[in-house]
């Protein structure tokens, strides 16, 4: 319905992805890291949809559905793990779980 160039869309997607990346590298709280990963996934999905829209095919949207599914599964398991980690270390510091044995 609108006409944009694909470069603009991909640029937007890229910026969102990089913002998620910065968040992942900077934040020490596990929950925020997980949120940053969600941002990155969303940005990747946006890129797919833009590509699919450019070629007027449903393939981009199909890919986004798969990404969505995967994100849901990952978040559920990840949050369960975060709860377990909190029970174990009594903190949400990601660096707390850095002791490697041996």
């Amino acid at each position: 319905m609108i006409s944009i160039s694909i470069e603009t869309g991909l640029l937007l997607s890229g910026i969102l992805f990089l913002l998620g990346l910065i968040g992942l590298l900077v934040r020490r709280n596990i929950i925020f890291m997980l949120m940053s990963v969600e941002i990155m996934l969303n940005a990747a999905g946006l890129a797919f949809v833009i590509g699919g829209s450019r070629w007027a095919q449903p393939d981009g949207q199909v890919m986004f559905i798969f990404i969505l599914t995967m994100a849901a599964a990952e978040v559920s398991v990840g949050l369960a793990l975060i709860l377990l980690l909190y029970h174990r270390f009594k903190t949400v510091d990601a660096d707390a779980a850095s002791k490697m044995r041996g």
Binding site: I4, I6, S53, A56, P58, Q61, I65
Partner: peptide, 16 residues
């Protein structure tokens, strides 16, 4: 630039 056409749910469903 390109003109975006609407791809509705039916098409996506058929593709899936």
């Amino acid at each position: 630039t390109f003109n975006s056409t609407v791809i509705n749910a039916k098409q996506v469903g058929m593709s899936l």
